[in-house]
Simulated scan of single mutants.
Amino acid sequence: MNGGDEGGGPPTAGVAAVSPREAALAGRLGVRRVTYVPQVVSLPRWVLDERAALSEQPGERAPRYVTAGRICAQKDPGFFAETARELLRSRPDAEVVWLGGGTPEDEERLRSIGVRVTGWIERATLLGELARADVYVHTAAWEGSPMTVLEAAELGVPVVARRIAALESLGVRRLEGTPAALAATAEETAKNPQSAGVGLDLTAVHNSTAQREALLGLYEQVASSAR
């Protein structure tokens, strides 16, 4: 869809952006044909059934807060660690989980404050862990369109996240600017999951029909410009 603008390569014909934020950035770079193409997730039936069964189980238990991804600067483990401290200070029996891994040093920093770090795991294991979450907590410093947020929402797991431009543009509703505020929102969401919803409207935008129409529209724009 795009090529290099330097070294004699062809100019960019068009950009398929995975979030409105990416589309805006591409426009600022002078790209004339930019289309937001929403990402779509497809989850196996078994994990949807597992989530549904867990949601129907009564009983009081400690809340379970989960995030997922590589432990790296982009995901900002420091922000997550501060959020985890607040959650565990308020509810010491809460389970805070990072699904994924990083360097031994980064993993140990999180474990030292009480976060369970799984290390790298198979996708089926990750989805099973995600299905058992009460709240998905996303603390990345920057993003495109994170698939883990969409997967959590598809499962019906409430999403709370750090306030960044990409997530604002995607319509994630429960966004906070500080670890303390994010922890407070996560706690309230865990207490009232039904009233909270998932925090992201998947059906209106993140579906295969919308994705197909956006891509076909961009292809048509590019093809028309070449005639």
Score class of each variant (00 low, 15 high):
80 F>K: 01
80 F>T: 05
81 A>R: 07
81 A>D: 12
81 A>Y: 05
82 E>H: 02
82 E>W: 00
82 E>Q: 08
83 T>H: 02
83 T>C: 06
84 A>I: 12
84 A>Y: 13
84 A>Q: 10
86 E>D: 13
87 L>E: 08
88 L>Y: 07
88 L>P: 02
88 L>F: 07
91 R>A: 09
92 P>G: 08
92 P>C: 10
92 P>Y: 09
94 A>F: 08
95 E>H: 12
96 V>S: 00
96 V>G: 01
96 V>I: 04
98 W>S: 08
99 L>K: 12
99 L>C: 13
99 L>G: 11
101 G>T: 11
101 G>C: 12
101 G>R: 12
102 G>N: 14
102 G>R: 14
102 G>A: 14
103 T>F: 04
103 T>L: 05
105 E>N: 04
105 E>P: 01
106 D>F: 05
106 D>K: 11
106 D>R: 15
107 E>R: 02
107 E>G: 01
107 E>I: 03
109 R>K: 14
109 R>T: 12
109 R>Y: 07
110 L>S: 07
110 L>F: 11
111 R>G: 11
112 S>R: 09
112 S>Q: 13
113 I>C: 09
114 G>F: 04
116 R>M: 10
116 R>V: 13
116 R>C: 07
116 R>E: 14
117 V>S: 04
120 W>M: 10
120 W>Q: 14
120 W>P: 05
121 I>N: 09
122 E>K: 14
123 R>Q: 15
123 R>P: 03
125 T>Q: 15
125 T>L: 08
125 T>R: 15
125 T>M: 06
126 L>T: 06
126 L>M: 15
127 L>A: 11
127 L>Y: 11
129 E>K: 15
129 E>N: 13
130 L>E: 10
130 L>W: 10
131 A>V: 10
132 R>E: 13
132 R>D: 12
133 A>F: 03
135 V>T: 11
139 T>S: 13
139 T>M: 05
140 A>G: 12
140 A>W: 08
140 A>E: 06
142 W>E: 01
143 E>Q: 09
144 G>D: 03
144 G>A: 11
145 S>R: 05
148 T>R: 13
148 T>W: 07
148 T>Y: 07
149 V>Q: 00
151 E>T: 03
151 E>F: 00
152 A>L: 06
152 A>M: 07
153 A>M: 03
154 E>M: 05
154 E>K: 02
155 L>F: 05
156 G>R: 09
157 V>G: 04
157 V>M: 07
158 P>N: 03
158 P>W: 03
161 A>D: 11
161 A>H: 10
